[in-house]
Structure formats: C-alpha cells, structure tokens
Design a protein around this nucleic acid. Structure first.
Lengths: 178, 178
DNA sequence: CCGGCGATTGTACAAGTGTCCAAGAACGGC
DNA sequence: GCCGTTCTTGGACACTTGTACAATCGCCGG
C-alpha cells in the first residue's frame, strides 16, 4: 500500500477516533505510519486530504448503515432497533456525523457532503418503508430521517433515558391519535 | 460591568459565532474587550471560562426556546413551526448544540450539561403536549424531542428538502396507519 | 552501471495557542 | 496622605500546528 493510500486510511481512522475539526496533520501522519511531509506532497494540504477521506468515509459508513437497515424484517420497529444497535457499536461514527452537522455553517466545504448524504438517506429510508416515490415517499422518508437522527442523538447523549425501538413505535401510535 | 462579567458575555458571544471547540482565549478576550491575562485571573483557564459560559448559555437558550414553544396555540403543528422558526432565526445556537453533541465523548466535561438539557427538554415537551407524568409522558416527550432534533438538523443542513410543520403532522398520521 | 525522475523524509519556519509572571493601577479603610 | 488588597495588563514562555524546502531514496530504462 503506497503512502497515498496509507494517508487516506489514516485520515479515516482519525475521523473516527478524533473527529474532523480536531485531527491534526501529525495525527494523520502517525496513524498512517508515514512522514508528515507526505501529506503536502500527495494532497497539497491537510484539509484537502481530510475532505477526500471524509467523502469516502461518509459513503462507506452510509453504505454499511443502509445494508444493516435493509437486513431487518422491514418493520419500523426492527429498523429503529438496527439504528440503536448501530449507535451502540459505532459511536465514533455517529459523533463525527453530528460534529459535522455542527460545523455546517463554519466549514463550507463540507456542506455539500452533508446535503448529499441527507438526501440519499431520505430516499433510501422511504424505499425501505415501502413508499417508492411521490408525496407519500417524501413525507415518510423525511419523518424516518428525522426520527433516525433524533433517536441517535438520544442514544449518544443519554442512553438511560432514550427511547427504545418499541417505545418509539408505541409513541408514534400515541401521537397520531389526538 | 466588571471584567469577569465581560468575559462571560464575550465567551457566550464566541459560543454563538465560533462554536465551542474553535473559540480561542484571544477570541474571548477580544470579544470581551479585556486583556488576555484576565481569563487566567478570573477563571484559571480558558476551558473553565468556556464551560461556565456554556452552562449559562444553555440555560438561557433553553429558556428562550421553551417560552417560544409555550406561546403557541398548543397544537403539535404550531410547535413544529416554532421550532423551525427558531432554527431559521437562531442558526448559530443550533449549530453549536449539534457541535456539542458531536463532542460528547471527546470532551467529557460537557457531557453532564447535555444530559441535563436533554432531560429537562423532554419533560417540558411532554408537558407542552398535555401529558403530565407517567408512561405516556415519557413516550410523548421522547418522541417530541427526537422529532425536534431531527427537524432541526434537516433545516440546518438542507432547508430546501426539509419537512415543514404541516408535512411533519401529516407524516405522523401516515406512519401510524399501516 | 548510471542518469533521471517520482516518491519520501528530516527539518526548519512562521503563525497561533494557553498559561504564567512581574509590574503597575484602582480602590477602600484608616 | 498611606498602605494593603484586589484587579488588570503587557509581555514572555513553551508548545502545537500547517506548510515549505532541500536532501535523500528507490526504481527503471538505457
């Protein structure tokens, strides 16, 4: 594996372990087992390396989550359970996602990544719930995405008080009544 | 206003404008119109000043949001509309909130702030929707909080594709059917 | 063998960071 | 006025950070 690939891999690992804003050039070089100067040679600047690694990482993580959600029985409750399980086992990925959301106005270069990820996620969720296209898909996809993000943030910050998958399905039925 | 109060005010402004992780000691001193060394004298370290300012700021912002939500007609749709309006007019506050969520594992000192804010927000939302205590309040409060966070993140990242208040109420009814 | 070229790296540098210190300023009690 | 305490600050220090540069390495065609 050449230095260029090592740097991308090291940057992805740093995105997991340290996050986007706090990873330094030396962090990446150390994680990649490569000299500091290699970053400038292959990518010009640390920021460009991080952005390229972020682009790939978001696609990979999104794909993993998509397959995890698709290998459920398709019921809403099973999907929420899979989301919660993902938060439990892949905490650093989720924290990094929210860190990025918190920098969307301050780091303009990541804005497009987030918009793209949000839109594909929304349509995939709509498809997962059986709504292919049209207004119903837009509504269900948007709702599912909001619930997914809200559920994830609850499990990240306060797992003891967070809603379980069963809680969530019960709550939705409850909320639709009155 | 003494230097101590100026520093707290400057730190709050920096939390809005720059965020938590990226504000430097010199940013705060400049915003407060005070010398750099005043931070060490009054607060010991920049981190402690930022944490104290954060504690106050979270309480204030939470209070403002709570009153904004309570001055609606009480319907769910009006609450969502107020949330969306808050995201529109107070973007920096919301981005800072998600930035904090993204640092919850990496900055242990802010963890308690977030847990406390999450729990009070949940109970206030439950009360807002007429569910005082018990299991129903826990479910409705948790659901409302998840939706609030998910809605906010949609409006932060991609306002063009985000669900409106009417969309959200319609989607919930739709999701409760099948 | 060897010249050339891309790849790699040790190192240096400037800018930025948090913290500390000694000197002075402001203030109140006597 | 005088003194002790509290507050304030300019400046300095050690450290981190991103980037640039010159030297070196490795390899391959001739």
């Amino acid at each position: 594996m050449g230095n260029r690939e090592s740097l991308i891999a090291g940057a992805k690992q740093c995105l997991r372990d340290i996050g986007y804003t706090r990873t330094t050039a030396r962090d990446i070089a150390t994680a990649a087992g490569v000299s500091l100067a290699a970053i400038g040679y292959h990518f010009g600047s640390t920021r460009e390396l991080l952005n390229q690694a972020l682009m790939e990482a978001l696609a990979e993580w999104g794909g993993e989550l998509a397959t995890a959600l698709q290998t459920t029985d398709g019921s809403a409750e099973a999907v929420w359970a899979a989301v919660i399980e993902s938060v439990r086992t892949q905490r650093p990925l989720w924290t990094t996602q929210f860190e990025l959301a918190g920098q969307v106005d301050r780091l303009p270069e990541i804005h497009d990544f987030l918009v793209a990820g949000q839109r594909t996620g929304r349509t995939e969720l709509a498809g997962l719930f059986g709504a292919g296209e049209g207004e119903e898909a837009r509504l269900l996809g948007g709702l599912a995405q909001a619930l997914l993000a809200g559920l994830a943030i609850q499990w990240l910050i306060d797992p003891d008080g967070a809603l379980t998958a069963a809680d969530l399905t019960a709550a939705i039925k409850l909320a639709a009544r009155p």
